[in-house]
Design a protein around this nucleic acid. Structure first.
Lengths: 233, 233
DNA sequence: CGTTATGTTGACCTCCTTCAAAGGCTGTGG
DNA sequence: CCACAGCCTTTGAAGGAGGTCAACATAACG
């Protein structure tokens, strides 16, 4: 936990008009004029791997939209462990509890180098009330968050560890053609509710069986058919 | 699965103005006049135990607010089992995916005899757009739903089965003075991601250890201290 | 009063955790 | 450039927790 990894780095004031991922994030329905009328600053931040966006229990002044990368929302357990309850990717929003004036309900940490935009609570509340498209987009994010929570319960917390791991790999998208950088064994354990050792053993077994191949560095490619078959049970 | 248990019973057109739990449900901020201006019918339904409010995958024309009782939201597993992903009580809302025009994401079934109000999608969408208090109440329900999902992941799907069961009993509120009617062993299993047999064994052990007492019929009273201690690990 | 769901208990075996040790990778300082 | 520390990963052995299958008990119900 080095000091240079604990905080995201400020990149600059966000230029939403020119944002190349605007269609994926909250403000896709806003006109140039409407974007200009935002008074408070929306900051563009770069969160290096392991950077902490915010911590559970602290006051929540802003929400974060993910432009690229992968963010985990975790909750610390009384016994010292942790449980990851959500994974956020491009277009997802972290810290929506801000809108209800509460403190953050999770700790948000970057699993990969990520780009995020930090939107002050007042900005989003005003847009939510004045702009139907933003309002609709917000409802969608909330729904998406609930859907993902369901997935964590049903797919990642149910059944034998091997099946859960297969479902996790599918969820992470490493069945596609592109190789994916996987989270650490410890994070896999926190995602699935199993120990780090079990996560390591299962991954090792998957490699031996040829279900996953490490292509280069940390990146892996997976066997879609084999994994989906394992995921069933 | 008898036919008389599969559907909720129509009780009457809801009289929101006179509703004794109105302060707990979505319309607490509406005036009498605003309530009168609702054109489409809000129906008051009684859902007997095991009654099905709606089924996953069907088109979603309405949301349901819970006036009393206990509703489970479940998802069927590919292997024939089921997993309960949410429990709804007084003031909670089921089927909010309706607002995004989607099909239901869960199957909603009454765990106890329950009273619910069925609100047509159009009514809620209009109120959401025209009335800030309803809008705020909706955001709150979404947040509450996400919070409960977190609880299902962190408290009910993490750690040894015994600790999870202790947390479930605390969640169900049977540490209070009032005796509580517990769900079936099968539902406990579906809540915790364990088998019915394990749920039964753990409950039997709790009774032997004096952690829970069956007071009368299905009602039980629990030992708060003992359970909270078990819940830690 | 038989029939059917629901709960309980036992035996067995698999899966997962725990504790421990060793291997591999990376960055740092000599 | 190499040695070494620190971290992550892997692997082993042992024990316990939970699943599975089966039998039985109990309660609910027509």
């Amino acid at each position: 936990m080095k000091p240079n990894c604990t905080n995201p780095e400020w990149v600059g004031r966000a230029k939403c008009v020119a944002c190349e991922v605007r269609n994926f994030v909250l403000f896709s329905g806003l006109t140039t004029h409407e974007l200009d009328s935002i008074l408070q600053p929306i900051d563009n931040l770069h969160a290096a791997q392991h950077a902490v966006l915010y911590e559970k229990g602290t006051v929540a002044p802003s929400v974060y939209t993910v432009r690229s990368g992968l963010i985990k929302l975790k909750i610390d357990l009384p016994n010292g462990g942790q449980r990851i309850v959500r994974l956020l990717r491009q277009g997802d929003v972290a810290g929506m509890e801000t809108l209800l004036g509460e403190r953050y309900h999770h700790t948000a940490i970057a699993l990969q180098d990520s780009d995020v935009c930090r939107i002050p609570r007042e900005v989003l509340m005003r847009l939510d009330q004045t702009n139907p498209s933003v309002h609709q987009a917000l409802l969608q994010r909330w729904q998406r968050s609930a859907d993902q929570a369901d997935h964590f319960i049903v797919a990642l917390s149910t059944g034998p560890a091997e099946a859960r791991m297969a479902r996790l790999l599918i969820t992470l998208g490493c069945v596609g053609d592109h190789p994916e950088t996987l989270p650490s064994r410890e994070d896999m354990g926190a995602l699935l509710g199993i120990t780090t050792e079990t996560a390591s053993r299962i991954m090792a077994a998957f490699k031996r069986r040829g279900l996953v191949h490490t292509s280069r560095g940390n990146e892996v490619v997976c066997d879609p058919l084999g994994l989906t078959q394992l995921a069933r049970q």
